[in-house]
Amino acid sequence: MPAENSETWPRGGNDLVVQGDNLAVIRDFPDETFRLIYLDPPFNTGRAQSRQSSAMVRSETGDRVGFKGQRYETVKGTLYGYDDEFADYWEFLEPRLREAWRLLTPDGTLYLHLDYREVHYAKVMLDALFGRECFLNEIIWAYDYGARSRRKWPSKHDTILVYVKDPSGYFFDSRGVDREPYMAPGLVTAEKAALGKLPTDVWWHTIVSPTGREKTGYPTQKPEGVLRRIVQASSAPGDWVLDFFAGSGTTGAVAQSLGRRFVLVDENPEAVAVIRRRLGERDTLSYLS
């Protein structure tokens, strides 16, 4: 559990919403606190540059010592002028993902939510930070809404990369996940059809409806149904869940509804205002800025 002397962690173990730079905030959190971390960071920046970047890879023969005595070696490479300024994106995201690894419990899981612009590079980054053996799943969230391109296949999915802290001892509760209808119920027994099936790594789920009850008006809001599945599978009631790109606060709303504890961090005051309206005021929830 969080250290009692932490300035950013509320005394009494309250759920927490923090307005501030997420890297500065989470660096004050104690090691191995969260069983589940979900991140939905901003995607690209739109400018082209090139520069050399480096990543730290865990290695028994590495020349650097990191968390809990783990040894690392430095891997360098060149990133060439991507339209989305990927070199800057790497520099932005890498230290935050390193902190996510530190903050996960030994049986914890990270879900990183991106789109097609950055996900392939993020996979390489996470392989370096966590180890390739810690890669658990590539989840495709598919939806069918919005504009249609006539010059290519319309882009109607996001990708969620799933990494665990320890591939031999991570928490995953398939029995706690809401089941879904079979696409061809006639091919299974009546009992199986009535029960439904466990989801695969392809999730068909609509976006947040412009007229639905979930709608907050926040532009990057994700649907509760997607987060509900993640929280059900990779945490248990009473566990701590972290989202330090909190946006509209969907992670907190779902965690609260499922009996999990949560910490949300976002630098944008508009996001924190949306979260405050969405989650309300209660004795067990603290807001810090």
Results as ranks from 00 to 15, higher is better:
Ala3Asn: 11
Ser6Lys: 01
Trp9Ala: 10
Pro10His: 08
Arg11Lys: 14
Asp15His: 13
Gly20Trp: 11
Asp21Ile: 12
Ala24Ile: 08
Val25Ser: 06
Arg27Gln: 15
Asp40Pro: 00
Pro42Met: 05
Val57Cys: 08
Val57Lys: 12
Glu73Asn: 09
Val75Gln: 13
Val75Lys: 12
Val75Trp: 14
Asp84Leu: 00
Glu85Asp: 15
Phe86Leu: 13
Pro95Gln: 11
Glu99Arg: 06
Ala100Ile: 03
Arg102Cys: 04
Leu103Tyr: 03
Leu112Glu: 03
Leu114Val: 13
Arg117Glu: 10
Val119Leu: 03
Leu126Pro: 06
Arg132Ser: 14
Asn137Ser: 14
Asp144Val: 08
Lys156His: 10
Thr159Ile: 14
Thr159Lys: 10
Thr159Cys: 08
Val164Asn: 07
Pro167Lys: 11
Phe172Asp: 02
Val177Gly: 01
Asp178Phe: 09
Pro181Phe: 01
Ala184Val: 11
Lys192Glu: 15
Ala193Arg: 05
Leu198Gln: 05
Asp201Tyr: 11
Val202Gly: 04
Val202Thr: 15
Trp203Gly: 08
Trp204Ala: 05
His205Gln: 14
Tyr218Arg: 04
Glu224Ser: 11
Ser234Gly: 02
Ala236Gly: 03
Gly252Asp: 07
Ser257Trp: 01
Asn268Tyr: 00
Arg282Pro: 09
Tyr287Thr: 08
